[in-house]
């Protein structure tokens, strides 16, 4: 554990909490892509199956359970509790275009051809593109509420901090996880355009139409 990794995890947690609290307090999930949130729940589910096979640390176990619970709570709020406010007309990204290549790639490129490893690889690849339905929705409607942009900012910051963590770990432990690093860099690149808008235009984002 190093400061970049810890800051990255905290940033990830903050992002998820911002979104959940926004939906809970406003009793509305307008402008939020339910499809992205389902993909993130799928990411956590397939990645954290090792909760049942290996024990790493109390921190690790607690964070995994928290991320799983929060992601399912978010999906529940969007599709059940506040489904009247769900903007399904603008949440139309075809997730099969993400899922099919990601499933294919996780079978081709993995550390071991075992069910758990393939699912772990699938989750890493899927995470790198899971935000695309949300970004697509913002492009389609041409706007995002400021609180939604804070969510995206912390979500992007989390992966950027993980890159710093990987650089640190490579230099101090000689550790590197090729699949995670490549996907993490790709994931961070998806946020760069958003970061640029966030900084230059302020919190409330309107894309030029």
């Amino acid at each position: 554990m190093n400061i970049f990794r810890l800051a990255g995890d905290v940033s990830h947690l903050v992002a998820i909490l911002i979104l959940l609290m926004k939906i809970w307090r406003s009793k509305s999930c307008a402008g939020i892509s339910g499809r992205s949130q389902v993909l993130f729940a799928l990411v956590f589910t397939t990645r954290y199956l090792d909760l049942f096979t290996v024990y790493i640390s109390a921190y690790n176990t607690v964070m995994k359970v928290v991320f799983l619970a929060l992601s399912y709570a978010t999906v529940y709020l969007i599709y059940m509790r506040f489904r009247n406010s769900y903007d399904s007309e603008n949440d139309t990204f075809r997730v099969e275009f993400l899922l099919i290549p990601v499933i294919g790639l996780s079978f081709l490129e993995n550390y071991a051809f075992t069910p758990l490893e393939i699912l772990w690889t699938f989750s890493i690849f899927l995470e790198s593109v899971a935000i695309m339905p949300q970004l697509f929705m913002i492009t389609k409607t041409g706007e995002a509420e400021s609180i939604t942009t804070h969510y995206l900012f912390f979500l992007g910051l989390y992966r950027a901090l993980y890159i710093a963590n990987w650089v640190w770990r490579y230099h101090t432990e000689g550790f590197y996880d090729q699949i995670a690093i490549v996907s993490g860099v790709v994931q961070t690149i998806f946020y760069c355009d958003f970061f640029y808008l966030y900084v230059t235009r302020g919190e409330e984002i309107r894309t030029p139409s």
């Binding site: 990794r5 090792d50 096979t53 290996v54 995994k64 991320f67 550390y111 071991a112 490893e117 996880d177």
Partner: peptide, 10 residues
């Protein structure tokens, strides 16, 4: 023996 890699990151 089955491969067991430890993914210690979240």
């Amino acid at each position: 023996r089955e491969f067991t890699s430890i993914h210690d990151e979240l």
